[in-house]
C-alpha cells in the first residue's frame, strides 16, 4: 500500500486487507493518532470533535460570506466565535457599512506589515474630536485619550506563536496584484479570513483559522506549500 500525505486535508481511506487486519489497523491508528496530537490531554477528549467547528454552510445568516471575487477560491470552513467583551463596544457595522469607511483607513498597517494593527487612539480621536462626542462610547474613548492611554482591546483573531502569517503578502496577492480588484473592495479580501465584519459590531471570529483552513486555501489558490513559509 502506498500512503501519500501530500496535503493535510487529503484523506486516504481504502479497504486494504482482511477485516481482521483492518480492525487492528483502525484501532491502532486511532490510538496512535490521538496520542500524537498532544501528550497532556486524555485520548477521549482529543478524539471529540473540535469545540465549535461547524461544517461549511452552517453559518448564521448575519454572517453570510461575501460573494467570491475574481481571482480567488474562497477557503472553506466557518467558526462560531464567542462574543468578546471589549473595553468599548466598537461598532464595525456603523463605520464600515453605514459610513462606508474603507477597512484600510483604520487598519492601515495591513498593507505594509505582518499585522493589520489596531488603529492608534489618535486616529479615533481625529474624527471623534468633533463627531458624536455626546455618545457614551465616545465619552469613554475621550476619557482614555485624556488620560493618555489607549483602550486595552482584547485580541479576537490570534495565531499561535509558531505561525508566521503576514497580512501584507495576502493583500498583495488578492488585492494589489489582482487586476480585477480595486482597493474599494478590500472588505471582500478581509472577509476571506475574518468573515463579514461589516455586519458585526464588535468583531467576532468567523473562520476557524486552523492549519487545515490555511492549507485548503493555499492549495486552491496556488499558495506556497513549504513548511517553513509559515513555520519560520
Amino acid at each position: 500500500m502506498k500512503v501519500e500525505a501530500k496535503t493535510c486535508h487529503e484523506q486516504t481511506h481504502r479497504p486494504l486487507f482482511t477485516w481482521t487486519r483492518m480492525w487492528a489497523v483502525l484501532v491502532l491508528a486511532g490510538l496512535l493518532g490521538g496520542l500524537s496530537l498532544s501528550g497532556s490531554s486524555s485520548a477521549g477528549e482529543l478524539m471529540a470533535p473540535p469545540r465549535v467547528h461547524t461544517p461549511p454552510g452552517a453559518a448564521d445568516s448575519a454572517d453570510e460570506p461575501l460573494g467570491p471575487f475574481p481571482g480567488v477560491v474562497a477557503p472553506e470552513g466557518t467558526y462560531e466565535g464567542k462574543n468578546v467583551e471589549q473595553p468599548i463596544e466598537f461598532p464595525h457595522d456603523l463605520h464600515a457599512d453605514t459610513n462606508k469607511i474603507n477597512c484600510l483607513y483604520c487598519h492601515t498597517y495591513a498593507r505594509r506589515s505582518a499585522v493589520a494593527g489596531i488603529p492608534p487612539t489618535s486616529k479615533c480621536m481625529g474624527c471623534h474630536n468633533v463627531i458624536a462626542t455626546d455618545r457614551p462610547r465616545i465619552k469613554k474613548l475621550t476619557e482614555y485619550w485624556e488620560k493618555g492611554e489607549s483602550p486595552p482591546w482584547k485580541k479576537v483573531h490570534d495565531l499561535p506563536d509558531y505561525v508566521r502569517f503576514t497580512h501584507e503578502r495576502h493583500l498583495k496577492k488578492f488585492l494589489f496584484d489582482n487586476p480585477d480588484m480595486s482597493v474599494e473592495r478590500v472588505d471582500e479580501v478581509c472577509a476571506l479570513c475574518h468573515g463579514n465584519v461589516k455586519k458585526m459590531t464588535v468583531a467576532r471570529k468567523q473562520k476557524p483559522l486552523t492549519m487545515g483552513f490555511c492549507t485548503r486555501c493555499h492549495e486552491a489558490n496556488d499558495g506556497p506549500f513549504d513548511c517553513q513559509k509559515c513555520h519560520k
Binding site: 500525505a5 491508528a29 486511532g30 490521538g34 500524537s36 469545540r51 467547528h53 476557524p208 486552523t210 492549519m211
Partner: peptide
Amino acid sequence: VMGVSGVAATVAGCDMP
C-alpha cells in the same frame, strides 16, 4: 499502521484550533 495513523493524526491536527 504507522503510516495511516500518521495521516489520521495530521488530518485531525490541521483543523484543531
